[in-house]
Nucleic acid binder design. Structure first.
Length: 931
RNA sequence: GCCGCAGUGGUGAAAUUGGUAGACACGCUAGACUUAGGAUCUAGUGCCUUUGGCGUGGGGGUUCAAGUCCCUCCUGCGGCACCA
């Protein structure tokens, strides 16, 4: 019987759908396992072969876990709000919901063609009101809570109010935007507006005037991670700095918890490192410097208190509130001019001139808290307003930025550390945290580390400041001036924000006539009719950003149809959190931070039982495209020169043009297909080159990102139709390690296709099914169990490429042995079923089974079939000597000694020594203790 | 600049974590069966000056033993980047 994958694929995909084979139940005696893929944004371009890489891996693991006896939750959904659908809507006038739905249908078809075992009954779409009800609800809860730093969790804002009323600001330790100080009496005397202003300083969701990345072309603000090199990540439009009133989430309050729990996660070290960098914890001191002849001072943050005596000037950020307070009359004009210049500079300009320093002298001086010396106060835009206190003490001898500033403005440089490479601080700063302190009074002679501790003690003893931890992680700006996103569940009374209660949710996205800002510059929701409460209070006009809907979707899958709660206590207690999360590493600083934050917040509320959403994560690499080019003569637009000839630039002056990779085979152009590809190429002529005996047109190639415009997109459906879904799945895994990025290349696909045919043929003799019930021979069992053992080991390490190799070896060996024993083949079919489920189901049925292979028990590898015997060579020597041996496990000590002594290699190492004992550890290696 | 990851045949890659380097596959070569082969099968395939020698980016080290550990340099990828 021929291997007819077309028929088999269709048959089993229908079977799975009709029988709901992969439906997960919330009540089961089996242990649970939750495998999650990062859900896709359903773009108009459809899936290419790169997208399913992670889905295939997670599906393999899911099926494996099912066979191992787990109740596996493996859902899929769509991150359906987003910019591309809205941009398309602006161009065409079509409602984004319509195009999104069409894309979702296409995605589902493509996913089904690959044979994934998703539980589709749990599908979620972030743009469904029944889904975003809970996104909105979580937001209202963030508004109603503050972060208590003493209890280290989010608490209701009502508790804060009563604490303020009882004991003023001192009664609560809370994470706020600013430090506020007021007494209980003052609090009680504040009017409603003032009170709300204070609460906004602590609410986890709060309104604030913040400098934002404004993208005029998109008409919206963007998060820092949506901006790359001053251009928007989507579309590449310029982005400028602007101060706007925006909703923000106090993500920074969770910095330490996000950092601490990272340790316990089974994520790749590089992904953890990305998050550590992003959170950017730094320990140091906050020290007050008094301003000369004034009754105030300002605080600076430093991680190098040891260099205190090396301070030769102070620098304030242009945004610092102290600029105005300290500037002298004579310098006022110069300072004002400088501040003007800074305002004009966009974020991008500031980055462009990284090396050159700008600044201006304020005319004022600080008094050094230890030496009492006068220190000039400067303003410089290399100091950031948003980090630390917006002011620094500059130590040009030991900080390269301060050094550059000192050189630019000719300020003194005093070395305070002696160390290797620290000889010439006039030329270059010595930044290393190594060496002995000099010129530093009380610190002289101490090592840097000691000096840091000593100075911290001094600072605290003299009441000049405190130890302080700063984080780089900023609060998330949560407003987008766009249409296609979750509406905020917020209305305003006298400009003061109020939250809709849960019974009023979801607040559904209204219809608008156009998806563009209003004439007054309001976001598109400003066009909606009656966008207000029943009482006539206006709703918020912004919508939420992309990461809102993706921050808690994994919880919704547990209980997708619950209309009363995000997730029921029971469902959450059963599924807990995601055991395995598979997705691209590019979400390290976005989605993966936000969803961890969001999850921790819900945990603080007691809504869920685990504070980390994703226990283990695997980051699949990107599959790049392999583009092909043709070379058109500039002088004659109809003539194309073959690649090797076109390389001769003197002879041919050509232009490189992307050509559809689907009409190119092994870099050789299908000329007839090319003529049909585009009307303008219909009468093209070609200058060919010799390849063997024939003349061909060779194309050039390059590895690039897979994209429509480069004509290098390969669709998974095309491959599935040509070779079958199982070949596609096996091949994507066989391509190399999962986590590595690699170009797509169909060259090796024949190899795995041949393997499947070979495997199929083990069950068949010609056209007939041929299976034997005889007992398997030891040789056959060895082949089987070697394979099972390897598969078992590799499965747990996500080393799927080597697993595929193990199956190939087994198939080759069994083919050579002409083995068609049921005993051997049935185990092999189960082991192969996660990789090639369609083929496995078909063969499983042929073996006489009546239920899906996904119900079968995972075959256990038994070591007893694997023992071998042949002698090797000594492997280690340190009192004990170890020999790599392959001996029968039941060998006695005497037999081992005999084997060891009998070998020529051992003579060399054992000369003059006596063997005291020998044991087999664990099965291959003999430990010999000699003396 | 700082941090992280990697560098192995013509190609994608393996290597039990210190133990026979190159599994498996592609490609290539030869042969078989064929009217035919872009089908299938069999054998071979790291390199060289081939009774031997050399080989995991370069150099050095530890070890009986190094792709694997240590030092150093080179190259590539990813992240952060005036974060004090």
């Amino acid at each position: 019987m021929a291997y007819n994958f077309q028929e088999i694929d269709k048959k089993w995909q229908n079977y799975w759908a009709q029988n709901e084979t992969f439906k997960a139940h919330n009540d089961s005696d089996k242990p649970k396992y939750y495998v999650l893929d990062m859900f896709p944004y359903p773009s108009g371009a459809g899936l290419h072969v790169g997208h399913p890489l992670g889905y295939i891996a997670s599906d393999i693991y899911t099926r494996y876990k099912r066979n191992k006896g787990f109740n596996v939750l493996h859902p899929m959904g769509y991150d359906a709000f987003g910019l591309p659908a809205e941009q398309y809507a602006i161009q065409t006038g079509q409602h984004p919901a319509v195009t999104t739905e069409a894309n979702v249908i296409r995605y589902k078809e493509q996913l089904d063609r690959i044979g994934f075992s998703f539980d589709w009954s749990r599908q979620v779409k972030t743009c469904d009101p029944s889904y975003y009800k809970w996104t909105q609800w979580a937001f209202t809860q963030m508004f109603e809570h503050y972060y208590d730093t003493a209890k280290d969790k989010a608490l209701p804002i009502e508790e804060m109010k009563s604490a303020f009323a009882g004991g003023g600001s001192a009664a609560v330790q809370a994470w706020g935007s600013k430090e506020l100080n007021f007494s209980a009496q003052e609090w009680q005397a504040f009017d409603k507006k003032k009170k709300e202003e204070i609460l906004q300083n602590y609410r986890i969701a709060y309104l604030d005037e913040v400098p934002v990345n404004w993208c005029p072309a998109l008409g919206t603000v963007l998060a820092n991670d949506e901006v790359k090199d001053g251009l928007s990540e989507r579309g590449g439009h310029p982005v400028e700095q602007k101060v706007m009133k925006q909703w923000c989430l106090r993500v920074s309050a969770y910095s330490q918890r996000l950092l601490d729990r990272l340790e316990s996660l089974d994520w790749s070290e590089s992904m953890k490192e990305v998050q550590r960098n992003w959170i950017g914890r730094s320990e140091g001191a906050q020290v007050e410097f008094a301003v000369k002849d004034k009754d105030f001072g300002f605080e600076i943050f430093t991680t190098r208190p040891d260099t205190m005596y090396g301070v030769t000037f102070m620098v304030l950020a242009p945004e610092s509130e102290y600029v105005e307070k300290v500037v002298t009359a004579s310098q006022k004009a110069a300072v004002d001019q400088y501040l003007e210049e800074c305002k004009k500079k966009s974020q991008r300009d500031r980055m462009m001139e990284t090396k050159s320093m700008t600044g201006v002298f304020t005319g004022a001086y600080c008094v050094h808290p230890f030496s009492g010396k006068e220190i000039p106060i400067w303003i410089g835009d290399y100091v950031l307003g948003g980090y630390g206190t917006g002011a620094i003490m500059a130590v040009p001898a030991h900080d390269s930025r301060d050094h550059a500033f000192a050189k630019t403005f000719d300020l003194p440089i005093i070395p305070v550390i002696e160390g290797e490479g620290a000889q010439n601080v006039a030329e270059a700063s010595y930044d290393a945290k190594e060496g002995k302190l000099i010129n530093s009074d009380i610190l002289n002679g101490l090592e840097v580390k000691e000096a840091i501790t000593r100075m911290l003690e001094e600072v605290e003893a003299k009441n000049l400041g405190t130890r302080k931890v700063n984080y780089r992680l900023r609060d998330a700006i949560f407003s987008r001036q766009r249409y296609w996103g979750e509406p905020f569940p917020v209305y305003y009374v006298d400009d003061e924000p109020h939250m809709l209660s849960v019974d009023k949710l979801p607040l559904e996205l209204p219809e608008v006539d156009k998806y563009l800002p209003t004439e007054d510059g309001d976001p598109p929701l400003g066009r909606a009719k009656k966008w207000q409460t029943e009482e006539g209070h206006p709703f918020e006009l912004s919508t939420m950003p992309g990461f809102a809907g993706s921050s808690a979707y994994f919880l919704r899958y547990m209980d997708p149809n619950n209309n009363d709660e995000l997730v029921s206590k029971e469902a959450n207690a059963y599924w807990k959190n995601v055991d395995l999360y598979v997705g691209g590493p590019e979400h390290g600083t976005g989605h993966l931070i936000y969803s961890r934050f969001w999850n921790k917040f819900l945990y603080d509320l007691g809504v869920i039982c685990e504070d980390e959403p994703f226990k283990k994560m695997v980051n699949q690499g990107m599959i790049q495209g392999r583009s092909n080019f043709v070379y058109r003569l500039k002088s004659d637009q109809k003539t194309f020169v073959s690649a090797t000839l076109a390389a001769d630039k003197k002879k041919y002056d050509t232009q490189e043009i992307h050509v559809d990779v689907n009409i190119v085979q092994n870099d050789i152009l299908d000329i007839e297909a090319f003529k049909k590809w585009r009307p303008e190429f219909a009468d093209a002529s070609f200058i060919l080159e010799k390849e063997g005996d024939s003349e061909v047109y060779k194309c050039g190639w390059a590895i690039e990102k897979m994209s429509k415009s480069k004509y290098n997109v390969v669709n998974p459906d095309t491959i599935a139709n040509k070779y079958g879904a199982d070949t596609l799945r096996l091949y994507e895994m066989f391509l190399g390690p999962l986590e590595q990025s690699k170009p797509w290349n169909t060259n090796g696909i024949e190899g795995v296709y041949r393997f499947l045919i070979k495997f199929w043929n083990l069950f068949h003799e010609g056209e007939e099914l041929s299976l034997s019930d005889e007992k398997a021979t030891p040789e056959e069992l060895k082949v089987l169990h070697t394979c099972l053992k390897k598969v078992q080991e590799d499965m747990d390490n996500f080393s799927f490429n080597t697993t595929v190799a193990a199956f190939m070896i087994a198939a080759n060996d069994l083919a050579k042995l002409k083995c068609n024993k049921r005993e051997v083949l049935s185990d092999l079919v189960v082991a192969l079923s996660p990789f090639a489920p369609h083929t496995a189901e078909e063969l499983w049925q042929k073996l006489g089974a009546t239920e899906s292979v996904s119900q079968a028990a995972w075959p256990v590898a038994e070591e007893k079939y694997l023992v071998e015997s042949n002698f090797n060579y000594p492997v280690s020597f340190n009192g004990k000597m170890r020999f790599l041996l392959e001996l029968p496990v039941d060998y006695s000590k005497e037999q081992i000694q005999e084997a060891v002594l009998g070998h020529e290699n051992s003579q060399k190492w054992l000369e003059g020594k006596e063997i005291k004992k020998g044991i087999i550890v664990p099965k291959k290696i003999v430990n010999i203790v000699v003396g």
